[in-house]
């Protein structure tokens, strides 16, 4: 039995309204997307929804630097990832692009520094 799900694509600020027809974890059709990435998003959303995590991490001296996952990670792991990142103290000498956690929670994504530190 095919189901219909309406969703807003979050890949870019355009925010396309998608209509997805699916059966179980099998996506039959995606409508309303302006680009291919919308199709990929809809399929992921119906099978394994993922999100890029952006947060901060504390340095040894108590400053905070911004970090992100360099790939989207499964949505249900966001809070576990936050827990791990918040327990961390990183060196004061980190720079943009440095990896602070490699392969977080076995997702294949690294947590990297995004702050621009001169």
């Amino acid at each position: 039995m095919a189901n219909i799900r309406e969703m807003t694509c979050i890949i870019c600020p355009r925010g396309c309204q998608l209509t997805v027809e699916y059966e179980g974890k099998n996506v039959l059709s995606v409508k309303g997307n302006a680009c291919k990435r919308g199709n990929d998003y809809a399929v992921a959303e119906c099978t394994c929804p993922t999100r890029t995590l952006t947060t901060t991490v504390m340095t040894e001296s108590g400053e905070v630097v911004a970090v992100k996952s360099n790939k989207a990670i499964p949505k249900e792991l966001l809070f576990d990832a936050m827990k791990q990142i918040n327990a961390l103290r990183v060196s004061d000498s980190v720079r943009q692009g440095d990896v602070v956690v490699a392969n977080i929670l076995d997702t294949g994504a690294d947590i990297i520094v995004t702050s621009y530190i001169e």
Binding site: T8, C9, I10, I11, P13, G15, R51
Partner: peptide, 11 residues
């Protein structure tokens, strides 16, 4: 933006 309602609230 619609995407922010989705990923910041609905999620």
């Amino acid at each position: 933006l619609a995407r922010n309602i989705e990923q910041c609230l609905n999620d």
